[in-house]
Each structure stands twice: as structure tokens, then as C-alpha cells.
Amino acid sequence: MRYLIALIFALWGAVASAQDWEDRRVFNPGASGPVLRILSSTDTAIFAPLIDAFVQDNPTVGVEYFVTNTGDIDRRFRATPKGFDIVVSSAMDLQLKLANDGFALALRDVDHPPWAQWRRSLFAFTAEPAAIVINKAAFAGHAVPQTRQDLIAALRERPEQFRGRVGTYDVRQSGLGYLFATQDSRASETFWRLMQVMGGLDMRLYCCSGAMIDDLTDGTIAVAYNVLGSYAAARADGADAVQVILPSDFQTTMMRTAMVSAQTGQRDAARLFILHLIAPTTGADVLPLPPLPSGTSDRGTIALEPALLTFLDKLKRQKFLSEWEDAVIQQ
């Protein structure tokens, strides 16, 4: 059974890579100068204002913005590092590994706090906590869970209400989902209990946050775990229907990172874009995403350090995924 599922996902991944992008948009199409090809996991709608401002400041530069999920970004970029100038992703571990493996260009003169960058080649520009997001309607008349324990209790209390209506990332596909899951597993055993409970309720698995939030907004699912709350809130269409809960037992905060491809042909323009991205006035303030804390990193923020490589180890990943599947996929 395990092999079958693996096969299905492998085929699906191949199809996904062959198919077109989640989204693709060209900014400043008539630009006389270079065209920056940005590979990103962030929705165009969220990123567009920032890029618009960028091309306004640099009218000669054009931007071609590709959106796909984090796992796909890693595969595509490793396959054709020359094809993209900038990689923006929420999967810190994959980004770090790309940088570790020499795919990132070091920008020696770009100044950024040490905890928010790695080797001056990977630059963080947001700090987004993973959240429990609920459809308000599903919890009408019930206490809103504040911790994972609360959530487990709520799910156990009303299993029929939630059967087939809980969702989280498919960690096998989503790099960000894998990152959150592994970091959660490091933090607390509660994660595994929650996975078992959710697995027992025929949990839906999503490749991408967009789809998951769509389902949550229209009430297809009532609870989404480890969603980027801010991301959900940023999607204006369903903001009223959902409630974002930052669990008070412990938080896992991801930093969105960007890097310049080591093989870029647009070194100067790429550098300008990174500067534009990390400067609070032109970057974080424009994005509808939580900015980096000033000063030091908050507790719970995933550190940009080699430890992120651990869960990317082939054997460790296999082991983690098999445990995860054992917990989630119950016969």
C-alpha cells in the first residue's frame, strides 16, 4: 500500500512538474532592460504590489513572476538553476539546502541582521507564525480552541462534526508543510497525537495553502492546521468567515526567504530586487504579511542554521514520512 501511494504521488509530482504554473505573470512587459525571472511560492496577489513598486522604481527592469509550491520550486530550480534569477520560498529548509549546495549567490554588500540571513545569500523578509485556522461557523456555540490540546479535545468531542472537515498540508508534497511538521515534531509530542486524531477524522491533505484556505473559507473544511494565518487573512475574499488562532502552547514561526541564483545573468537587477525586498519601507510594509521583528528573532522562529538540513536527509525524511503516514493514513 505504501509503495502504491508513493508511486501515485511520484507520478502526480511528475505531472505537476510538466503542467503549467499555479500562476505566472509578467510585470512591466515593455521593459527595455533585463527581465528578472522570480520563482516563488507566494501568491501573485500578495506579491504584486511589491513588484509593481519595484518596476516603478526601476522602469527598465521587467519581472516575470512564477508561482508554484515549495517542493516544486526546489525540484525545478535544482534542475535549471540558470532559468531563474531569484527564488522566493517559505520552505526555509529547502532554501537553506539550496544555499548550502551552492545554488545561491552571496551578496557581500547587502546588510541584514545575522539571524535573518544565511551566508549573505539567503535573506529572510517576513516572520509568519503557523496557525490553526477555523471556520467560524463550525465553532459557533463552542469554545474556540487556543492550544493544540484544546483542538484535540474539540475534535474528539465532536468527531462527526469534523469528519472529513479537517485539513493540513500534505507534507510529502509541500515543502512548507514538511518544515512545519518536522519543527512541530521537534517541539512536542502533541504534534503526533494531533496527527493521529486528525488522521482518524479522514483529514484532507493539501499541496498548497491556497487550496486549503479556499476550502476553509467556503466551509468545505472547518479546521486547518499549520496554515500561515497571516496568509489566510491576507486573502481578502474569505477573511470574515475564518478565524486565525496562534496556538498558545508553542508557536512555529517561518521566515520567508529569498535568494539570488548563483548562475543568474542579471546580477545587478537581482541584487536591487533583494534590497527592495528586505528594506522595511519597500518590502515588508508593502506586503500584507507580518514583517521581521526588529532587533532579534522571536522565540519559536525557525533558525536559519544547518540543523534544517537534518530533516532533508534522505533516510531521515523517509523515516519521518513513514511515521507521518502511519499516523495520518489509517486504515
Partner: peptide, 8 residues
């Protein structure tokens, strides 16, 4: 082989 996080 379960590489310990502390190793890195």
C-alpha cells in the same frame, strides 16, 4: 540512521 538534529 536517524541523524540527530544536534549533530548539525
Amino acid at each position: 540512521l536517524d541523524i540527530p538534529i544536534s549533530a548539525f
